[in-house]
């Protein structure tokens, strides 16, 4: 039997403080352009360190399904509509107050590998100076029936689930969701390994 050559994945290193030089070209705060189905929403987030200080030098990446629960990716073989031009990617740098904002459509439910409906969610990745490896979390929507059965949320200790829940706000009649991400502390946000 021939042994295939195996080379472990390259080691992560921090993005450092100057990532905008390379990453700014793909900054996207408007995730769903015109002609994309679904309810228009905004997310207003904030990123805090272990001393509750805002983190002004982080980059946040969002990955989401469309309103039908379909990803713009050939690996998603669900029989659901996908609009031309929908990608579902956002990238936003935090500002001096540690805040980041984006607009999009609310994602639909995506099935798990075992065919169970997941609750609507955004996949959110964080990179910043001081973080040697990126972190991945999820943002869920408040008052969703599927939150009670969502396979990933069920893996999270009950006391920590609220760290993944957006809070409902309204700004200028647009449904807006607030979210504070804590890197540390009693409300430390849940991050995933998969």
């Amino acid at each position: 039997m021939i042994t295939k050559p195996f080379m472990p994945a390259t080691t992560w290193q921090t993005v450092g403080p100057f990532f905008s030089i390379g990453l700014e070209r793909l900054y996207r705060a408007d995730i769903a352009g015109a002609g994309v189905d679904g309810e228009r929403i905004r997310v207003a987030g904030r990123l805090l360190d272990g001393d509750y200080n805002p983190i002004p030098d982080a980059v946040v990446e969002v990955w989401q399904a469309n309103a039908h629960g379909k990803y713009a990716h050939p690996g998603d073989t669900q029989d659901k509509p996908l609009e031309q031009g929908f990608r579902g990617f956002g990238r936003i740098a935090t500002d001096d107050l540690g805040e980041f904002r984006f607009s999009t459509v609310k994602p639909g439910s995506v099935l798990t590998q075992s065919g169970e409906p997941q609750a609507p969610h955004l996949v959110v990745s964080l990179m910043m100076r001081g973080l040697l490896r990126g972190l991945v979390t999820r943002a869920y929507f408040p008052n969703e029936g599927l939150n009670a059965t969502d396979q990933v949320l069920q893996c999270v200790p009950p006391a920590r689930r609220s760290t993944l829940l957006l809070s409902s706000l309204v700004e200028n009649d647009v449904p807006t969701f607030g979210w504070t991400i804590h890197m540390q502390g009693p409300s430390e946000t849940v991050f995933f390994d998969f």
């Binding site: 690996g75 396979q151 893996c155 430390e188 390994d193």
Partner: peptide, 19 residues
């Protein structure tokens, strides 16, 4: 002050992570 101190939560990746 920026590294998470709690263990990461291990999940089965879904389409959300496999795409």
């Amino acid at each position: 002050k920026r590294a998470p101190l709690q263990p990461l939560v291990t999940i089965t990746p879904t389409l959300s992570e496999l795409t």
